[in-house]
Design a protein around this nucleic acid. Structure first.
Lengths: 208, 208
DNA sequence: TGCATCTGACAAGGGGTCATGTCAGTATGC
DNA sequence: GCATACTGACATGACCCCTTGTCAGATGCA
């Protein structure tokens, strides 16, 4: 009755421990949030709406997240990690030089964004200025993306201008947004070529 | 007593007509809004706060704007119009070829943004995804900026790729944001040169 | 001076959200 | 079978915001 909550007995439920259940609920919340953000926009998405989409109650929301912003950060991390990983992976394969690598990476990037336009909109546009923490997280994600491209060009780490890198990824991002705003009117290869010209500001002068 | 409100008599007050007073209140609201957005961020700025900053009551807010979004659009228009005009103006003067023109325009752009970082943050970052109307307004502003640079390059209107234009301005914008995030660490000329490399994706191949 | 109009201050209804609390029902381990 | 811990549904209070309304006082015009 007194001090037996020091050890968490962690009863098993439906075949999983308390920790596992908590983790699963957390995952469900993140997934539901990404979906709901995409449908209603981040600013119009309440905690209640996310919980309903996840099939959980608000009580379980505050079990895993301090507030709405914490959930957004978790979603942002999940989404960008997957995206950057996919982009990096596509750099491998049949090697056709730096330009070929970057081309494949850009194609992957645009394809992934096109696959879920709503989510892309949320995580490229809507999160701007939500909070300093989110901003910082977003900048870091862009930085990782920029590094991936610089790596593909074969640029040595000490030969990279952070400002130019930021401009380059920002440009690719806005190119993707313009493409999306047009309803993906242009064929993918054209989009990739345009983006490649932006990326080429990093690479060696002559590049085909 | 019946139908004498068809004509607005418009009494004079403090030396100005009703229309003039309304317009002046509107201007004060817009100015106060830009200031308050910069201080507290758009999403944390209530109608009440703007009115207090303007030294007016909420009653006068709804006299000029249907809602908070309408005020944001008005502010966005005012700010971007001034910015684009300043950038275009700086293209003139001692002509040193396309690259010189673009350099001067970029210098103006960065200088104006640096002069009011808070406002820049609001109107470059925070307004993303506020509403479809605001998004559209913002895209148009970016388009006008892109056109100004393309004009400075001397690019014929039919030789412009909208996608590449969008990527270019987006890149310059993000470069400015990265510069601001660094606390304006780098000297302006370096920033301008980096941005010029981005802009050069539009211009003729060889450019000094 | 007197009246009509405009102004600024305040109030309040209505709505929504956040975060926490309560409680009966249910699955689990013993 | 029974006690225990967990779950889901609902409820609550506090807070903030939008929007409209009221009203006394100031200001200009005749």
């Amino acid at each position: 009755m007194m001090a037996d909550s020091i050890q968490t007995p962690s009863k098993r439920y439906r075949g999983s421990s308390a920790e596992e259940r908590r983790a699963e609920r957390r995952t469900r919340l993140v997934r539901a949030a990404v979906r709901t953000y995409g449908q209603r926009g981040y600013h119009n998405t309440s905690v209640k709406a996310v919980c309903e989409a996840a099939g959980l109650t608000e009580r379980y929301f505050y079990e895993s997240f301090a507030n709405s912003e914490a959930l957004l950060v978790a979603c942002l991390r999940a989404v960008t990690q997957r995206l950057v990983a996919a982009v990096r992976d596509s750099a491998g394969g049949a090697d056709t030089g730096p330009a070929g690598r970057v081309r494949r990476m850009l194609a992957t990037y645009f394809t992934v964004l096109q696959r879920d336009p709503a989510a892309a909109r949320v995580f490229l546009v809507e999160i701007g200025g939500v909070s300093p923490l989110v901003d910082q997280e977003f900048r870091q994600a862009l930085g990782r993306f920029a590094d991936a491209i610089a790596d593909a060009w074969g640029l040595p780490p000490d030969g990279r201008d952070p400002l130019l890198l930021a401009g380059m990824v920002g440009g690719v991002m806005h190119l993707a947004l313009a493409w999306a705003a047009s309803g993906y009117a242009r064929p993918l290869p054209q989009v990739v070529e345009a983006a490649l010209r932006l990326c080429a500001v990093l690479g060696p002068a002559g590049e085909g």
